[in-house]
Design a protein around this nucleic acid. Structure first.
Lengths: 143, 143
DNA sequence: CCTCGATATATCGTACCACGATAAAAGATA
DNA sequence: TATCTTTTATCGTGGTACGATATATCGAGG
């Protein structure tokens, strides 16, 4: 970092930019395929990940915990929980210890959707892995 | 696939589900950080990727080409182009050869934003690479 | 006990993004 | 010319996320 303007970053050359574009494109492909699998299981990607977070948490998870796990603001998690509850995939349970908190739990429907979508995702994991590692490698070597 | 119900997938065990949850969490971290960098450069992630696609295409790119590159429906690309044009980051140019087509080109402002954000992204690429490969490896080995 | 600041959840309005359905203009073809 | 296709655009809807704000509860200090 021995440049005149301390905060200025090195300019990006054409090859680097192209490789980076291909990485982003790969990422989009991965997410598009995931979205497709989710839709096939009557889920959106966000709802799938929310169910995943709720299910894999060791203990009952609160709305705030969900926000933290999904890197969201609290109220965004509230809204996500609203939609999931309306779709009968989760239930809100009052926390006996701390009456401010609301715990979230999967319904049988939610669990069924989650496990179906997760299994389908894992089926295509191999290709995902190859796609991503190749793109990552390509960007690194172009730098 | 020697199971009674041909289309039924293998059930996912707890360890696998947990590893997969961590992979999705890593992916979210990567996207959240990217979003943050984009915001700092007065972009959203979608606009950044659109600019990237337009800039790295060899020749002038049309709305339809953009849709294809971003894995979007045509009209979603139209809307994205609308927002980018309104923000003065791209220009629409009528195609002389085929008057149905509209070509997209970066403005100096768009190019500046793109290169700034791209440079910032590449700065943090090393960490991104480690995060993702570790998570991918973890899921694979849990399967 | 009571107030006060912090924490947890919820609500409201706004914006971005993406889609299906539909339309209009221009090219391609019979 | 008439028709079919391609390309772009418009309209209405829904999912997601945010900032600002509100309400309830908890916990600490007086």
């Amino acid at each position: 970092m021995s440049m005149k303007k301390g905060t200025k970053l090195k300019a990006v050359d054409k090859a680097q930019l192209g490789a980076f574009a291909r990485l982003r494109r790969s990422l989009r492909e991965v997410l598009a395929q995931s979205e497709e699998i989710c839709i096939a299981h009557e889920l959106t990607a966000q709802r799938f990940q929310a169910l995943l977070a709720i299910e894999t948490a060791g203990e009952p998870i609160s709305v705030g915990d969900l926000a933290s796990e999904l890197i969201l603001k609290h109220h965004s998690a509230v809204e996500l929980a609203d939609r999931l509850a309306q779709a009968k995939m989760i239930e809100r349970i009052a926390d006996k210890q701390d009456k401010r908190r609301v715990l979230l739990r999967l319904t049988p429907l939610g669990a069924q959707r989650l496990h179906g979508a997760a299994a389908a995702h894992l089926e295509s994991l191999e290709r995902l892995h190859e796609t991503l590692t190749a793109s990552l490698q390509s960007v690194k070597s172009s730098g």
